[in-house]
């Protein structure tokens, strides 16, 4: 059973807050869980570390994943998510400043569901986040877990 939470994996404080703001502006009211690096994100997903004891049956509606992070970067997190039976089907949206071709290719290679490049213009960023929420929370149908 999935929760309605959105897991945001982002190390930049400013970006986290801007994303929060963008989600608010876009009227996405779901619970937002923020992991500041990849390690923390995995802890949350698998109920380890500081999230020990969390009900891991409750998976986020989708994950917003930054690529460039200290300790464990977005690709490593993605690999783990897709490798584990429990998290395999959770939609992952890459949300990054990079528009490098290789990053885009690598992301899809590892099984990402969407790739969003954060624009510098905040207004456009809000638009992007709003659309994202609309798509993944409202329109997208996910296979129900037995």
């Amino acid at each position: 059973m999935n929760s309605n939470a959105i897991l945001l994996v982002e190390d930049s404080r400013s970006d986290v807050e801007l994303t929060v703001r963008a989600l608010e502006k876009g009227r996405v009211t779901n619970e937002l869980v923020v992991a500041e690096d990849g390690r923390e994100a995995l802890d949350y997903l698998f109920g380890t570390g500081k999230y020990a004891g969390r009900d891991v049956a409750q998976m986020p509606a989708f994950i917003l994943l930054d690529l460039k992070m200290p300790v464990m970067d977005g690709f490593d997190v993605l690999k783990h998510i897709r490798a584990d039976e429990r998290t395999r089907l959770v939609p992952v949206v890459i949300l990054t400043s990079s528009q490098e071709e290789q990053d885009l290719a690598m992301s899809y290679e590892l099984g990402v569901n969407s790739y969003i490049r954060k624009p510098v213009d905040f207004v456009r960023f809000v638009d992007a986040v709003k659309n994202l929420g609309l798509y993944w929370l409202v329109l997208n149908e996910t296979p129900s877990k037995s």
């Binding site: 930049s12 400013s14 970006d15 801007l18 703001r21 690529l67 460039k68 990054t96 400043s97 990079s98 528009q99 490098e100 954060k118 624009p119 510098v120 213009d121 905040f122 207004v123 960023f125």
Partner: peptide
């Protein structure tokens, strides 16, 4: 592409 744009986005976002 990554590190220079992120602060710019912050400046723009917070200015707004």
């Amino acid at each position: 592409s990554h590190d220079l744009r992120a602060p710019l986005r912050g400046i723009d976002g917070w200015s707004l």
